[in-house]
Structure formats: structure tokens, C-alpha cells
Write a protein that binds this DNA or RNA. Structure first.
Lengths: 343, 343
DNA sequence: CTCGGTTTTCAAAGCGCTTTGGATGCCGGC
DNA sequence: GCCGGCATCCAAAGCGCTTTGAAAACCGAG
């Protein structure tokens, strides 16, 4: 069933039917109702491709999944962010499209997505330091939003981010206040912008307290469970092991916990742990009492906000740049306690 | 840059340029090269909407995300499945599209996706028992594949699934062979087809061993960490607590482990645990030695296979129905051991 | 040279929608 | 009785591509 057929049934012109369905004023209320009834009855759905071709808009927003962020992995954070975004997209009549691209052609992927006219805007996830994609998108004039920021990029761009530096500064200070001095940081991949900011916060807190950082206590890699376990086990074998561990994700915090268990150490008593908690639906930080002391910020909520900001940008391409900085909340759970007395 | 402009630059007709780029034989090799060079030079990308309108194909495959599978949650399994699928889509020139739908309008969402011409086929994830969407899709004549199966659906359909029943039968038998009799099952949502099949396998193994099932040991809900923790803690308070626990996901297994730790019980010695492991990228079941004894089947691999099967179906809509049953592997880790002597 | 058969190219129609620029009919005011 | 203004409706063009049917160019055989 297409427009032509429907208009023929109604004995109206395609013009009128189109206008009736799209809410234009130059059609009488009576015919509008008649048209809507017929459309519903025959299950008419305007062809998205034809509509897109005629309007120049696709009502689709694109995301690019790097086929391998190192080891062909998919971050579970991704799922919650996307769930938040897609919900808002739906509210505004947008669909969401994914393209896959290997790391080398990731810029190409964005370019093709937009220049083919497949999408009206794109979301850039997981920016690195000096992220080259930002300038590419900027030059292409495609509406986009960055989830995160990128140190070193000079062009202006819309972004939404959590205050990584201040939240890790605060978490580190919290541990210092508890008397900890040997504080480890199990961070994300080094070239990720968020990882650097978190490290900056961590280092600044140490500096303010006059504690000199120990490279042996600073680790970075993709934040899996196995990674959290491995690094923790490794650091516990040091002559002067950490009494507290700061980790960039709940998933690796679970690995940290496992390593502590294996070593017969009690979390919160022998070793304190603070995690960054993205408030994932399937991995809540406990029910009423938090399992981990954590810096918490819902990535799902970030997804919703990102979607809204992008849709605004699509509507008003020449508005001034918009940015949004979310503050993470510090929730105190049972995984932290005073530094153990080592004498 | 569009076809018309490009053809004008080349002093050729749009017809010829189109044919040159799409590999038709009725164009001389010389002009083909000339066209390809010019296209590359000017960064020409055929407009996807126009192409789709002309060809009747959109080269997009649709997935529907229920906006709330109960509590607005997003399963991390989703991420890995999608990553597998999108990779194969890309290899065949397809993009992936997501639409969001609340539980009531989920059929509508599929219908609209396809009838609008937005996608060439769809993937149905997380089928329930007597899944109504299958018949809807079947009636609509849309190419689709089901990840999982649906007991009670009579129409034929393509599916790919893991052998849930036999793998849980095997896991349960493994526990029985270790001397366990009080075996708990922490399962997924009751109306999900996979959950029923797993329960069937579990029950059959008990029956074969002459153990009568205890309803107090059978739990079902959405498989979060908190859920695994909650149910385990609850069951440990029973007069006759379980000596072994079977759980439907690694995530809830982590919760199980946490509850055991809190109760001062050692996993594998005091209580045995077997999990179903979807081999998630970010939540590997240990490195060399598995953390949990588990029934393992890569959901990412399932995503790849599903994508291939769907693309075949799109190409040959009238081929006989294709199905694929994957066998889960039983990997033995440190989480299981002989039933403790309770005398 | 001519002619049938290839090879190569092209003009035009069509995909299903929106939108511009009328056309039509109806109203009250002069 | 005529006319401007308003409310409705419509024909046709156009979005950027593919594809059909036909024309042009070229070829070697006769």
C-alpha cells in the first residue's frame, strides 16, 4: 500500500493525503479524519526511503562500532548508553543505525555514513586524546556529539561528559583521608581521554597530600574482569603492596575483589577499593547498601542527554556549541575503611 | 556530489556512470577505470536513500530493543551478539538499525520497520514461549531469524540456538555425579523460552537420578548480579540449603559468589556453582583456568552465524527453513567439587 | 562499400514521497 | 453583480538513483 494507491481509494490527490497525514493546515478537518482512518485501516506506512529522498532527511542517527577496540571487545557500557539514547531517538522519531569499522577506517565509516545520506547526525563514542575523528566530522559539517571529550582538539564541538578528574580526585582524597598512602590506580586504556583525566585527578590528590606517585601502582588496559584480577594479584606481590585500589570500572572491580579473595584479604578491612560505577542495569552496585564505595554516574542517563543534545544540534546546526559536564556522585559502601596498621 | 554532477564532469550519461560503478559488463574497461578514478577523486558516494528507492532494497537489517524488558534493562549479552552480527553485516554491505519499542507495541515496531521499507530483514531476540511475534513476522513475509526458539509456535521459521536443555542436563548430572542432591537453579525470566528449556534439562537430570525437585530451590528473574546475590542469600537460610547452584548467567554467578563469600562459604568446597557462560568479551570466565565450572557457548559467534543465515534468507526467500543448534561446551573450573559431607 | 552483429553509450521512465505554484469553489462586502 | 480573500484541493516537478529499450559507434565479413 503506497500513497498513490491510498489516495486513489480515497478519491483524493496524493498531495492532499500527504498533507493530511503530516498535519499541514491546508486540509479540512473532515478530510483529515477520513484520511487518517483509511491509512489506519489499510495499514499504510509511508516509505522511509522515498520520504527521506524527498525531504533530504533520513531520520536516522548513526553510531560506529570499532570492530576491534584492541581485542575485538564490546564494552557493556555501550549497551546502557545506547539504551538511553535509542529511547530518546524514538521519542523524536529517529531510528538508530550502527556501522562497523575496523580501527584504520573508522573515519571513513563516519564519512560514508553521512555522505551517503544514511544518517542525519552521528554520535562519537570513546574519544581518545587528540581524537582525529572530531576534526573530520567538524570539517564534514555533519551534526555530531561526543560522549566524552578530547584533550588537544582545538575545534569547538558539542560534548557530554562526566567530570572524571574531579571525581577521581575526590575518591583519591577520600582514601587519603582514611589514612591510605599506597593507593593503586587500575585505569582504562592509556590513550583514552577519560583515562587520562582520571589519572590527572588521582595524581593531583596525591600531590596535594604530599604523596609521591609510584609507577608500579598505576596500570592501564581495557577494563575487563580478568584485567582487574590480574593487575591486583600482581600488585599484591610487591614488597610494598597497595592498601587501597582505585579502579575505572565495576567490571574490573569484580576482578579486583576476586584477587583479594584468593589472597585471603578482606575488602574494606585489608584493602580498600573504590570503583567507578556507570550504574549499569545488569550490574548494579548492590541494592540498598552499595557493594563498592564508588564514583557513580549513570551512563544510560548520559545516553539520553546525548541524544537530546544531538537532536537539538540537527535542528539548529548553527547554534553555538553546547557542552554538558555531569558530576559523579561519591557513594560510600563497604569496600573502604581505614588504612590497616602495618606495624 | 551526486551522480548527475559526476557524470557531467566525465562527459558521460548517468546511466553509464552508474553501470561502471556497479560492475555491469556493458561498459568498456577503459571508461570504467576513468569513472572509478573520478568517483574516488571527488569522494562520490551514491545516496543510500535514492539507491534504496530505485532498487527496492535498503541494505539494512533491523533489530528491536524492548525499551523495558521489565525494568528498563539492557542485557550485556546484547552487546556481544550485536558485535558479532554487525561484523558480518558489514562484510556483506549491510548496516544495522535499531528501533526502540515498549513491550506492548513491539510487534508494531517490527511491522513498521519492515513495511516502511527501512530494513530488508529483522532479527528477533529473546523469544518467549509461544512468542507471538514469530507469527506476525511470518505473516508479513519479512525475512527474519530468531536467536533462540519458541516452544508452541507452529509456523516454520529460521532459528539459531544453543542446546539449552542438553547443556543444563549435563551440568546437573555433573553435580549429581559429584554427590550433590540439593541443587538449586537460578534461572532467567520464567516466560523466556531458553529458561524453560534449561529448567527442563535440570529437571530431567534430577529425575534420572531419582532426586525429587524442590520448588524452593528454583528461582527465576532477570539475570542481574543483584538477583544472583539475593536468591543465594535467601536459599542459604533454608533449613536444608543447597550444596550446589546452577545459574543461567555469569553475571548472576558473580552475585552468587558474593553471597557465598558473605556467608563465609568457600565456592567449590562448601557450595558448588555452575554458570552458563556466554563468553562475553568483557567478562571472560578467567584466563587459563576457568573461574567457574560452566556451560560455555559464545554469543558473539551466535551473532555472526545469525547474521549469515539471515542474509542467506534475504537472498533466497523461498528456500526451505534453516535451523542451527549449537552445543555448549562444559568447562570445568574451580567452582565445583564433591558434595560436602554433612554428618 | 555495405551490412549484420557487437560493443558501448544514452534518453527517459520509474521508485514513493514532498512541495511549489496554481486552480477551484465559496464567502461576504462593495 | 463583481471582486478580493480565504479555504481546499490538485497537477506536476523534483529528490538521486537504477534500469529498460533504443540509438550510436565500431567491427570484420561479404
Amino acid at each position: 500500500m503506497n500513497l498513490k494507491q491510498l489516495s486513489h481509494i480515497l478519491d483524493l490527490s496524493p498531495t492532499t493525503v500527504s498533507r493530511a497525514l503530516n498535519g499541514y493546515p491546508e486540509v479540512s478537518e473532515e478530510t483529515r479524519l477520513r484520511v487518517q482512518a483509511a491509512a489506519a485501516k489499510h495499514g499504510y506506512r509511508p516509505n522511509a526511503r522515498a520520504k527521506g529522498l524527498a525531504t533530504g532527511r533520513s531520520m536516522v542517527i548513526g553510531h560506529v562500532i570499532p570492530s576491534s577496540s584492541r581485542h575485538e571487545m564490546v564494552n557493556p557500557i555501550f549497551g546502557d548508553f545506547v539504551a538511553g539514547a535509542v529511547k530518546k531517538y524514538a521519542e523524536h522519531g529517529y531510528d538508530m543505525m550502527f556501522t562497523n569499522a575496523d580501527d584504520t577506517s573508522i573515519e571513513d565509516a563516519y564519512r560514508s555514513l553521512f555522505q551517503r545520506g544514511a544518517v542525519d547526525g552521528v554520535v562519537l563514542q570513546g574519544p581518545k586524546v587528540n581524537e582525529p575523528r572530531i576534526e573530520v566530522l567538524n570539517r564534514m559539517q555533519v551534526p555530531f556529539i561526543v560522549h566524552g571529550r578530547s584533550t588537544g582538539v582545538s575545534v569547538p564541538y558539542d560534548w557530554i561528559d562526566v567530570n572524571n578528574k574531579s571525581s577521581f580526585l575526590r575518591a583519591t582524597r577520600f582514601l587519603i583521608d582514611l589514612g591510605h598512602r599506597r593507593i593503586a590506580l587500575i585505569n582504562g586504556l592509556e590513550d583514552m581521554d577519560f583515562a587520562q583525566r582520571r589519572r590527572d585527578g588521582y595524581l593531583e590528590a596525591l600531590k596535594q597530600a604530599g604523596v609521591s606517585p609510584d609507577p608500579a601502582l598505576m596500570r592501564s588496559a581495557e577494563m575487563t574482569e580478568v584485567y582487574g584480577h590480574h593487575e591486583t594479584r600482581d600488585m599484591l606481590r610487591l614488597d610494598d603492596p597497595p592498601t587501597a585500589i582505585l579502579t575505572s570500572s565495576m567490571i574490573s572491580a569484580i576482578g579486583v575483589r576476586r584477587a583479594l579473595d584468593e589472597a585471603g584479604l578482606k575488602m574494606g578491612r585489608d584493602v580498600s577499593v573504590i570503583a567507578h560505577d556507570d550504574d549499569l542495569s545488569y550490574l548494579k552496585n548492590g541494592q540498598d547498601v552499595p557493594i563498592f564505595t564508588a564514583t557513580r554516574s549513570s551512563v544510560r542517563h548520559a545516553g539520553e542527554l546525548a541524544a537530546e543534545m544531538l537532536i537539538e544540534r540537527i535542528r539548529a546546526p548553527h547554534d553555538p556549541v553546547k557542552t554538558r559536564l555531569l558530576e559523579a556522585e561519591l557513594v560510600v559502601g563497604g569496600s573502604t575503611g581505614p588504612a590497616p596498621n602495618r606495624f
